[in-house]
Amino acid sequence: MSAARYFVSGKVQGVWFRASAREQALALGLRGYARNLADGRVEVLAVGDATALAQLETWLRRGPANARVDDVRREDADASEAGEGFVCG
């Protein structure tokens, strides 16, 4: 089990980024959350198989159709930070 925290910057708020990230994460069997940050970024915490995390990261670098992703920063995370399922905060 792997865990990663992603900080996504660009035009990522108000464009269904969190909900779309949730759909992607659930399809990949990941748990965690996506939430807006006060500085305009979106934070995504994901826990699961390393291959699924890599696939999610690839998607995060594109985002949904109306988003513009400028940067994605990844950090290792603690799997215990994620609850059950995948939620938008």
Rank of each mutant, 00 (worst) to 15 (best):
R18F: 01
Y6N: 04
G14M: 07
V12A: 05
E23A: 15
R5D: 07
L56G: 01
R5T: 10
V42Y: 01
A67Y: 03
L37E: 11
A34E: 01
E75Q: 15
A67H: 03
T58L: 14
D39G: 04
A54L: 11
Y6V: 03
L37F: 02
G63H: 02
G63R: 00
A19M: 09
G14P: 07
R18N: 01
R5G: 06
S9H: 09
L56K: 00
R22Q: 15
Q13S: 06
E23M: 13
F7I: 13
Q13M: 05
D76V: 11
L53C: 09
R35N: 05
F86N: 02
N36I: 05
A21K: 01
V12S: 03
E84P: 12
L30C: 08
N66Y: 12
D49F: 11
R74S: 12
R74W: 08
W59V: 00
G83P: 04
A25N: 00
R31V: 09
E23V: 11
A77E: 09
F86P: 02
N66F: 10
T58D: 11
Q55G: 09
E43D: 06
R31E: 01
L56M: 07
A77N: 11
A21C: 13
S9P: 04
A65K: 15
A77S: 15
G63V: 00
G85V: 07
A19I: 06
A52T: 10
M1E: 14
A38Y: 07
R74L: 14
R41Y: 05
F17Q: 04
R35W: 03
R41K: 14
A34I: 00
G63K: 01
N36C: 06
G89V: 07
R73M: 07
R62G: 08
K11R: 15
W16D: 07
E84Y: 09
T51K: 15
R22P: 05
F7R: 15
L56V: 03
R68G: 06
Q55T: 15
L37S: 06
L37D: 06
A34Y: 02
P64Q: 04
N36V: 04
Y33H: 13
A3C: 11
F86Q: 04
F7H: 12
G89R: 14
E43N: 07
